[in-house]
């Protein structure tokens, strides 16, 4: 019997079934899991707290009033002409106002143009107001920054006190410690509040008390930290002073 070419009738159905199994597998992987993670921890979110509304609210109603004054003397096409240079001026130095002031001067000589004057006045008015607003908003910004810095400072202080209190609670009482004893520690923190190391900077003179405080610092791990991650830099290294009398 010579070599026979065997008939394989099942190649196609087997291939189709194999593909079906794989598509099922990937469908399972794709739909079987909830691949999207939930919203990340609030630690990454930063929120600005404003005590008062920003100045912009006041600024917007002023502009339309001025524009309404300007249109009557000339056609409407002028409107953008006026508005556009204004914006430039707002953006750049006030030096540009001088050449424009000079321009209108020859005009009265040429003809009886009353209209440009009103326009000029309106323009000047506008400039003055915008400058005022800018100054005001810059000041407001500065105030806000100051306020925020102050708020941050408050938060930092609050948490420093919290840290100090937490450690304090864990310090076991040591007999025969002088009331004026003062132990200074340099505590290095990791993000999240874990204590990396606690280093004795200045001994209280009583080794037992120093040890007690060091144990308390390590025991207080994790230390409370403000939720704003950006403030962590101010907690990375903490100078903490402990007195038994407190």
């Amino acid at each position: 019997m010579s070599a026979t070419v065997y008939y394989e009738p099942y190649k196609l159905p087997a291939g189709i079934l194999a593909l079906a199994v794989h598509s099922m597998f990937f469908a399972l992987l794709y739909f079987g899991f909830n691949w999207n993670r939930q919203a990340s921890s609030p630690a990454t979110m930063s929120v600005e707290l404003w005590s008062s509304l920003p100045e912009e609210v006041v600024a917007t109603p002023v502009n339309p009033k001025v524009e309404e004054v300007v249109p009557p003397p000339q056609e409407k096409i002028v409107e953008p002409d006026i508005v556009m240079p204004d914006k430039n001026k707002v953006a750049s130095k006030p030096v540009e106002t001088k050449p424009e002031k000079k321009k209108p001067v020859p005009r009265p000589v040429e003809g009886v143009k009353h209209k440009p004057d009103t326009q000029k006045i309106a323009e000047q008015n506008l400039n003055a107001r915008i400058a005022d607003q800018q100054a005001a908003s810059i000041q407001a910004e500065r105030i806000r920054q100051d306020e925020q810095a102050a708020a941050n400072g408050r938060v930092v202080d609050e948490y420093k006190t919290k840290i100090h209190d937490k450690i304090k609670r864990n310090v076991s009482t040591i007999p025969d410690v002088a009331n004026d004893a003062r132990a200074e520690f340099l505590v290095t923190l990791l993000p999240g509040g874990a204590v990396l190391k606690a280093e004795l900077k200045k001994s209280s003179g009583n080794a037992a008390y120093d040890d007690a405080v060091e144990r308390a610092i390590l025991k207080s791990d994790p230390l409370p930290l403000p939720p704003d991650v950006q403030l962590f830099n101010r907690f990375r290294e903490l100078d903490l002073v402990f007195k038994p009398a407190e």
Binding site: E8, Y10, A14, G15, L17, A18, V21, H22
Partner: peptide
């Protein structure tokens, strides 16, 4: 692995029928 897996499943079905 995808290619190998496809081939192995193809052979699995082929052999099963055969």
């Amino acid at each position: 692995l995808l290619v190998v897996s496809l081939m192995s499943w193809w052979y699995i079905f082929l052999k099963m029928f055969a």
